[in-house]
Design a binder for these strands. Structure first.
Lengths: 154, 154
DNA sequence: TTAACTGCAAAAGGTTTGCATTGGA
DNA sequence: TCCAATGCAAACCTTTTGCAGTTAA
């Protein structure tokens, strides 16, 4: 993951910020880039990744800035977050939406095709008028490895 | 919600505790009863419900006891928790499993038939060997009211 | 220039832990 | 009796907030 913050990501960010009268800062670009690079990262992981990129002596965005910007980027529609387990939420870039599947046993995260929930989404829309937001959904359960492990114990 | 802690709930609890050499305490019975009565309650809500039940002068379980027992009850398979939004997790009784649908706009929680995800569960099992745990799933999106509200603004 | 943004530090919220005491089996 | 469980208080971790200094536009 060598590329710190590809300029290609800056374009839609700059546009959306300008449209709202907000400012393009290096911190915002870096946070967005880190989210895209890390996939499934918690705010803390994002902050520490930025610290690492900055290196000793370099200035990384403050933790509070990371939080504020994650919230902003989400409002701008550039990132999404999901709650996978008990702990912190994880953020991922909004492009190429995918569905998260988490194993409650080992914590492993898989990404699956959002189309998996098309049927359920239709039914919710028809029955409740509820619009399912697939990007925010996390499915939890037990992966094959953990099931086998549990089976051989007890 | 008049019944503080129906004795009917105590039976499976006592059994499962005894099977593991653990003890049946009044605190455990109360926590379990509160989870069942409140539905979708956070640990904090459960603790404060218990304080209310105890009344002034009465002794309610300490917050740490509530946490410890929620964890235990979950290990015993009597309650489940789900993360609905950013805040605290919510607990519900493990009997009559249901699926949570949360509106990201207003926070309203609906319960829907777990069968909604049968198709998705089958596919996950077939493709990944992943066993979907429907009780832990929370679907987020936007309810009809919030969609209409958003549409009439901006 | 000027208001949005950041960094810092302190506060808040939720959860966990250590330890002496209590109480179920 | 004996050890699991509780209560209490302090610690912890993550997230939020107030404010003065900084910086994009």
């Amino acid at each position: 993951m060598p590329h710190p913050h590809p300029p290609s990501d800056a374009a839609p960010l700059a546009e959306r910020l300008r449209a709202r009268g907000l400012r393009l800062t290096t911190q915002r670009q870096r946070v967005l880039a880190a989210v895209a690079a890390l996939e499934h990262a918690t705010p803390e992981e994002i902050a520490s990744q930025l610290r690492e990129e900055a290196g000793p002596g370099g200035a990384a965005p403050d933790t509070s800035t990371v939080y504020r910007n994650l919230e902003l980027l989400e409002r701008l529609g550039l990132v999404w977050h999901t709650h996978l387990g008990k702990g912190a939420p994880v953020y991922h870039a909004a492009e190429h939406p995918h569905l998260h599947v988490v194993c409650a046993g080992c914590g492993e995260i898989s990404s699956v095709d959002p189309a998996l929930l098309d049927g359920a989404a239709e039914r919710l829309a028809a029955d409740l008028g509820f619009q399912l937001d697939v990007g925010h959904v996390a499915l939890s359960g037990t992966c094959r490895a953990c099931r086998e492990r549990a089976g051989s114990e007890s």
